[in-house]
Each structure stands twice: as C-alpha cells, then as structure tokens.
Amino acid sequence: MSADNDDARLAKARAKLERGFQGEEDLEGLSTPQKDFIAACVIAAFSVFALVLAWQWHNPGHLRFTHPGLLPIIIGVTLFAMAVGLGVRAVREGGARNLGSIFARTPEGEEQGYGPRVWILIGLVTALVILVDIISFRIRIPIGGFEFKLSSFECTAIPVVTVIMKVFWRASWVRCFLVAAVTAMALAAAFRYGFKIPMPGVD
C-alpha cells in the first residue's frame, strides 16, 4: 500500500514536470472558472472602491503630477481592467454556471473534512489573537536571585494551543496540555530572556 502511494506520488511529480513551466508558487489545480469568476467580481469591486477613495483626495501642491492619488488611480483603473479580463475569461470557460460548486462540502481533489477543519482553525487562531490582546496581567515570582515572569500571553496561549492540538493532533487532553505548556513557556522564555523582547500586554 505504501509502495503504491509512493509510486503514485512519483508519477504525479513526473507528470507535473512534463507539463512544463508552472511558476514559482505551486498553484496547479487551485483555479476553477467558478473561483476565477467570483474572484474577478470581488477584485473589481475592490478596485472601484480604491479608485473612488483615491479620486477624492485633495492635492495640496500646485502641480497635477504631484497629486497623492496619481498612482493609486492608475493602479485602481488597471486593476479593474485586469479583473474584467479575468472575469471575461472565466465566463468563457463556463465560470458563471454552477457557482455553487465552490461551496461544495468536499471540492474535487480535496480530502474529506478539510474545509470544516480550516474554518475551525481560523476560529481558534482568531480567538488566540483577540484573547492575547484583551487579557492583560502579569505574575512575578522571585526564586532566589531570579525573578520568574509569567504573563497573560502564556496563560492565554496554553489553553488555546491545547485545544488546537486536541482538534488536529488528536492526542489525549493531558498530553496536548503538557506539550502546549512546555512550548508556550519555552518560546516566551526564548523571546523574553534570549532575544530581550517583552511579551504582549504587560510583561
């Protein structure tokens, strides 16, 4: 079974090389006409928004060439043109039909449950960032001549990372907690004492 997987992976890589220049970033298979069509609509709206804002800026100078919106307007117009180009090609390839396919539970070429797992991860990462910002305290414990510092960063990061590990690593809660605690404390210590960088919040 493993040998079959290895052979399949090698065959896929060989086929990729045969297809020629694919660009520096491996984007093969990520585009569909439907995705391109939706992206084109969003980018067109974004470019119009950027363009309208740039148009409204006043020019304190006496030369039109020094207008602060000069390059933003040029970029807005050309970005809109590019979005139209992307949209037209997507429509020609059938991108305006079957738009629901991009919201399919398991899109083609994607493993079962990947999409929901991404959303869970985005939720947990956002929660970590917000919690580290809003929770702010510090604990200082003198041990001999050394002062042990514990900030809200470690106290917030440990439970959130424990949950992330539980969801994706699927080890026991105790194991996830221990790994999360050791890594969060070690990282905080490396930044605080090694690189002399204080932790977010009060440190």
């Binding site: 220049f21 984007l27 585009s31 933003p72």
Partner: peptide, 21 residues
C-alpha cells in the same frame, strides 16, 4: 510566480500596491 496564468500574478501584485499606499 503564477506560471501559465500571469494575470493572476499581476492582480496579486496590484492588490499589494493598493495596500502599500
């Protein structure tokens, strides 16, 4: 970076330019 679809590479760059301003 975009290989056979350079338009997408340019769009990515142009969005970056808007944020740069």
């Amino acid at each position: 970076s975009a290989g056979k679809r350079p338009l997408k590479g340019w769009i990515s760059g142009w969005i970056g330019l808007v944020f740069a301003f």
